[in-house]
């Protein structure tokens, strides 16, 4: 199913232009989590390009990506697939609706070693 609104949002948020992909598959060739994934990095790029996003939103693959950025580093076309995976992950989190992180939870989660930045970015992701 083509979801052009979500497609545009994903492209804008991730800053990834899937049209730059030349379908070489180096991202999937380099991915350490490949075997764990139902949809592989090159498929994320292709499916976002064609607007076939629903299956990605519902797939466990989203949470198998380690964000190691090997695909970003090695993509010859500068497509940066991991950033797209991250954007889909965010969309999935948002779709669930409920805040999964509340301000009240912070004191019990934080200790001296937790960087402030992590809390800020966790808020950004998990409280929409």
């Amino acid at each position: 199913m083509n979801n052009s609104f979500l497609q545009e949002e994903l492209i804008r948020e991730s800053g990834v232009n899937p049209r730059k992909c030349m379908r070489c598959g180096k991202c999937s060739g380099t991915c350490p989590a490949y075997e764990e994934m139902e949809y592989h990095p090159h498929q994320f790029v292709y499916m976002v390009e064609t607007g076939d996003i629903e299956p990605l939103l519902n797939s466990e693959s989203l949470y198998r990506c380690l964000s190691c950025f090997a695909c970003v580093e090695r993509c010859p076309r500068g497509v940066e697939p991991a950033k797209l995976v991250e954007a889909v992950r965010l969309a999935a989190v948002r779709k669930q609706g409920n805040n999964s992180l509340k301000a009240d939870d912070i004191p019990s989660l934080s200790d001296e070693e937790t960087p402030q930045q992590l809390l800020v970015s966790a808020f950004r992701k998990y409280s929409k």
């Binding site: 070489c24 999937s28 090997a70 090695r74």
Partner: peptide, 22 residues
């Protein structure tokens, strides 16, 4: 094979080639 090699890792006297077969 249609696909690209992602990485090559020397292991012993072999080279482990990790690649995708699209």
């Amino acid at each position: 094979i249609k696909g690209m090699v992602g990485k090559v890792t020397p292991e012993g006297d072999k080279l482990i080639v990790q690649a995708s077969d699209l």
